[in-house]
């Protein structure tokens, strides 16, 4: 008996390859997969770097994300401690192995307790480092792995994300080319998350409410230096 795979592909091919010479189709497909043309990039985010950072923050705030700025990585622990204190949150959080964060002196900033590794659902607060930010819509791009476990993005009630200002780009396409540089053409890490604001649902009478299953609040710390 013919497998479903062959039956499905055969049925499609009886139409798509009906023209005879199929080499043009093969060429067109290979070309697209190899060269991935980018289409229309909205003018909105085609700005100078400084303006792009401003637009990113503005767009993030428009989707109920809060944004803070620090001058250098050394100031990140204090910024996290301040945020937690201001929001009456406990001084302990979950974090992956990202060196840019792990090497910081957390113990000096208001007795912060850092729990290392993925989240098991018992953490109120998670801290991650983003791979980049997209100014067009105030979107964070997060990569899975030991450095920044995906569970930290979703299970804690409060998610604090550190983002280097220099990693903010205008559009999604610009970050895809950086992902390709890091992992190779056609390769992806297990999970790439675009995060645009804290979790929400409009399923009860079409009224948007924050904090459905993911974090109720999202705070971004932009490292300007």
């Amino acid at each position: 008996m013919m497998s479903s795979r062959d039956a499905i592909l055969g049925k499609i091919r009886s139409v798509t390859a009906a023209g005879g010479d199929d080499s043009k189709r093969h060429e067109a497909v290979e070309d697209r997969l190899l060269n991935h043309p980018s289409g229309t990039i909205p003018a909105r985010a085609q700005l100078k770097p400084k303006a792009q950072i401003e637009l990113f923050c503005q767009q993030a705030e428009a989707v109920q994300t809060s944004v803070g700025h620090v001058k250098s990585y050394a100031s990140v622990p204090k910024a996290v401690a301040d945020y937690l204190r201001e929001h009456n949150l406990p001084a302990e959080f979950r974090m992956g192995m990202d060196e840019r964060l792990n090497d910081l002196s957390w113990d000096k900033a208001g007795a912060l307790e850092v729990k290392s590794g993925p989240s098991d659902g018992n953490d109120l607060i998670g801290v991650s480092h983003a791979f980049g930010g997209i100014a067009e819509t105030g979107t964070l791009l997060m990569l899975s792995g030991e450095d920044n476990p995906t569970t930290v993005n979703f299970l804690p009630e409060t998610h604090i994300v550190v983002l280097k200002a220099g990693d903010i780009v205008g559009d999604y396409e610009a970050l895809w080319s950086e992902v390709r540089t890091k992992f190779g053409a056609g390769e992806m890490p297990r999970t790439v998350n675009w995060v645009t604001g804290p979790s929400r649902s409009g399923d009860i009478q079409q009224t948007m409410l924050l904090g459905a299953h993911g974090p109720r609040s999202l705070h971004i710390i932009v490292v300007d230096g």
Binding site: Q59, P149, T191
Partner: peptide, 20 residues
């Protein structure tokens, strides 16, 4: 403008991945 979570998944967890 964009939904909150757009997630791109490729295969099962990789070597060294702590979750997935």
């Amino acid at each position: 403008d964009m939904s909150v979570y757009t997630t791109f998944s490729t295969g099962p967890r990789r070597e060294g991945d702590p979750d997935g």
